[in-house]
Design a protein around this nucleic acid. Structure first.
Length: 749
RNA sequence: GCGGGAUUAGCUCAGUUGGUAGAGCAGCUCAUUUACACUGAGAAGGUCGGGGGUUCAAGUCCCUCAUCCCGCACCA
């Protein structure tokens, strides 16, 4: 309760000193403060106020640029604690840079998140109306998705504001708005012209439920125990966990060095009896075979296995489709044609057993790939899709290179620093294993591929450009782009590119200073931004990558609906204030490590905000009659000592700010303010000020100045961490009534 | 299988050129019209996961084992 506590005081209590603003007679109340303060910053001038670098004071205009683009939250719903942590960390960096006098830009936006958003809306429509997207048609369906995306966007923007983010709303972007669409088409055309984007029949990850391709990174592997069967295959015994794919198998592969099969020669033909009758198999020798696994011999299904596909490519073998895009067997399966693979497996084994071809079966545990969004088992398929060739050599500013090399060099040579640095290793090993990136998706929500087709005299013509070609006989590709294609452009598509005039105005902010994001999207996003920026602009997208961890509950469990342990950032802001919420997400968390968060922790930092409030009340009360003198020098011996200690603390934390050790800075300032400044120095000051002897005046004067000087510095240093309460106090200090707002004050040196 | 991380007080974690173990929370004892109860003072609590090594000196460096967590790769 925030009752007027002065009521509880008897009439005889010490009179309230005159220089304490009335506000301090009640405990600090974030709820009635924060929105007002946010407006103060934002409305300080038109177009985003202090959040817009163009409106910053003179010294910032001359300062070095500092920029961060917000990792755009997906418009699939609301923000969670992970987002809140991201916003807190980035706002600390931004406010710190601004106070250092840098020309500081933090640019907001949201991500259309193609598959994620589309499947979310499909789910809702099916639940409410029992309709599928094809029942609505492309146009109507997209309208529904856009409505949903707009609502999500509005919720997200509100949440970002509530956290106190000093972000430039006048420059907000969306990965699927008109400007970003032009950027996407421009980038696509450039890659197409350079031969880096190609269309071809290659093996892709097919999601039979979502009816679309997905990228390697959109798969989750699940442990599964299944049967592993050994079948007689002519003179060999082959092992498989997927008998239903074996219909077309007519190649039997073994390692060239395997002495057990030395009598069989590469290319040798062998007649044998198989599932649906006699076939002729061909012996293939390939080093991809693991001699120690199973029997050391296998048959291959190039259409439905990445490894088999590669073997088939190497030896120029036939590839046959066995399973259709819905997960049903094709006519090649004979009597099993039309059956779902899950139903067919047992029946096929039975048949092979009946034919005497089943040697044995055993339990086998492995991991199966499922689609992250739909949960369906991923079925590799050979399909005609669009790809980015990462190993394709091309001419880049006069030098031969590949996209893979560009991505490696960005971190190896061009100075991108990844924090914590152990993730550099992760990054490199991902790139080493990188295959061509399949960028086409068979979904409707997203950037349509800027390619048009027509048939002239029975021949297909392809046209790729930013705008549609003239003539009515051209038909645009039905597919959309992988959502990460547009996200990859984010650091510069938000700064006006490809519009030359607009981009020139914002050019100074690129490369951006820091990319702050979760370690879980280092591959999805960080690597793709490096690819796009080094390829298109010939420069790195950011200088430093700061990776934060997951926010877990108090016991270290993931927050999830089923566990019921989700802490909603807005609830915390409402109950304890944004400052407390921010601090609870910062302290005790280094880069790359997961954070544990409990409501008690947030509560504790709310108390700290109130502590600052009361510290100010005490300092103002006890220094009545003293005016803040910036040039004061007649310090007492004790105060000189305190000043030395405090200055040491400030230079320590400044160094730690530069090293991104915000968890240390927050904790140290918290500890100093509460347990040194308040508990020791303020308590001691009571004695000093109580002395009525004239000989004590010098010490009192010194102490009064020390308290005022130090309080102001504490408020400044804490501002990036707790912007609301510090700004509110700052504005209430009598000496600062006409001065500038704390948000643009200088960082205390 | 390959790689990474963690293991320090009951809980959550700091501890970055090796130099006598630190904080917050919880618990315990005390204080009670105090700037602030959203408070203060105090005490207690750890053979730094086990073992070995380097060193005058190891939570910190090296080796090894154990447990837990997380990526990546997958093998028919």
């Amino acid at each position: 309760m925030t009752d007027d506590i002065s009521k509880k005081k008897p009439a005889s209590a010490t009179p309230i000193p005159q220089n304490i603003p009335d506000a301090f007679l009640k405990p600090y109340d974030p709820a009635s403060t924060e929105d007002r303060i946010y407006e103060l910053w934002e409305k300080s001038s038109p177009k985003s106020g202090y959040f817009n670098p163009d409106n910053l004071p003179e010294r910032n205009q001359k300062g070095d640029p500092f920029s961060i683009v917000l990792p755009p939250p997906n418009v699939t719903g609301t923000l969670h604690m992970g987002h809140a942590a991201m916003l807190a960390i980035e706002d600390i960096m931004i406010r710190y840079a601004r106070m250092q006098g840098k020309k500081t830009l933090w640019l907001p936006g949201t991500d259309h998140a193609a598959i994620a958003t589309q499947s979310k809306v499909e789910g809702i429509i099916y639940k409410e109306e029992k309709k599928r997207r094809h029942d609505l048609g492309r146009e109507e369906f997209l309208k529904r998705v856009e409505k949903f995306a707009q609502d999500s966007h509005d919720t997200i923007v509100n949440q970002v504001r509530k956290m106190g983010s000093s972000i430039d709303w006048s420059r907000e972007a969306f990965t699927l708005d008109e400007k970003r669409n032009i950027a996407v088409r421009t980038a696509f055309k450039k890659m197409y012209d350079d031969g880096l984007i190609y269309r071809g029949h290659r093996i892709v990850n097919w999601d039979p439920k979502g009816q679309t391709t997905i990228s390697d990174d959109e798969m989750v592997y699940q442990d599964e125990t299944t049967k592993f069967y050994y079948f007689k295959y002519g003179p060999f015994t082959i092992g498989t966990a997927r008998p239903e794919t074996k219909f077309g198998d007519k190649y039997v592969v073994m390692h060239p060095d395997d002495t057990r099969f030395a009598e069989y020669k590469h290319g040798q033909k062998i007649d044998l009896e198989w599932i649906n009758g006699p076939i002729t198999a061909t012996v293939i020798k390939d080093t991809a075979i693991d001699m120690t696994f199973g029997t050391g011999v296998m048959t291959i299904t190039p259409w439905h296995s990445v490894v088999d596909f590669e073997i088939a490519e190497r030896h120029g073998l036939d590839k046959e489709q066995i399973i259709d895009s819905y997960g049903k067997l094709l006519p090649i399966a004979g009597e099993f044609s039309g059956m779902k693979i899950t139903d067919a497996r047992g029946k096929i084994v039975e048949k092979l057993k009946a034919k005497g071809l089943l040697v044995k079966e055993e339990d086998y545990s492995h991991r199966v790939a499922t689609a992250e969004r739909t949960g369906a088992l991923v079925e590799p398929q050979i399909m005609n899709q669009w790809f980015i060739g990462v190993n394709q050599e091309f001419d880049h500013n006069g030098k031969k290179t590949t996209l893979k090399q560009l991505m490696q060099n960005a971190v190896k040579k061009d100075g991108i620093k990844i924090l914590p640095d152990r993730f550099e290793k992760t990054y490199f090993s991902w790139i080493d294993n990188l295959r061509d990136w399949c960028i086409s998706r068979q979904i409707w929500y997203g950037h349509r591929i800027p390619v048009w087709y027509r048939t002239v005299d029975g021949k297909e013509e392809i046209y790729c450009d930013i705008e549609a070609p003239q003539g009515s006989d051209w038909k645009q590709d039905e597919d959309t782009l992988d959502t990460w294609f547009s996200s990859g452009l984010w650091t510069f598509s938000t700064l006006g590119w490809p519009d030359e005039k607009e981009f020139a105005k914002m050019r100074m902010y690129h490369p951006t200073s820091v990319l702050e994001t979760g370690y879980d999207i280092i591959f999805f996003w960080v690597a793709r931004m490096i690819l796009m920026s080094t390829y298109i602009l010939g420069e790195i997208p950011f200088q430093t990558v700061y990776l934060h961890g997951l926010v877990r509950d108090g016991q270290g469990r993931k927050m999830s609906k089923s566990l019921g342990n989700i802490i909603d950032p807005l609830d915390m802001v409402k109950k304890y204030g944004a400052d407390a919420t921010r601090l609870s997400l910062i302290i005790g968390t280094g880069p790359g490590n997961d954070t544990k968060l409990s409501e008690d922790k947030v509560k504790g930092y709310k108390n700290f905000a109130n502590k600052l409030w009361n510290i100010t009340r005490f300092v103002l009360g006890s220094t009545e009659g003293h005016t803040y003198d910036p040039n004061f020098t007649a310090w007492s011996a004790t105060d000189t000592q305190y000043i030395t200690e405090f200055k040491a603390l400030l230079s320590e934390v400044t160094k730690e700010m530069e090293e991104y050790k915000f968890y240390l800075v927050g904790e140290k300032l918290y500890h100093y303010a509460w347990h040194t400044f308040a508990d020791k120095i303020l308590e001691e000051s009571k004695v000093i000020f109580a002395n009525k002897d004239t000989s004590a005046f010098a010490d009192q004067k010194s102490r009064a100045q020390f308290l005022l000087h130090t309080l102001y510095s504490i408020l400044k240093a804490l501002h990036p961490f707790m912007p609301f309460v510090t700004e509110e106090i700052w504005g209430l200090l009598p000496v600062h009534k006409d001065k500038q707002h704390l948000i643009v004050e200088n960082w205390p040196a």
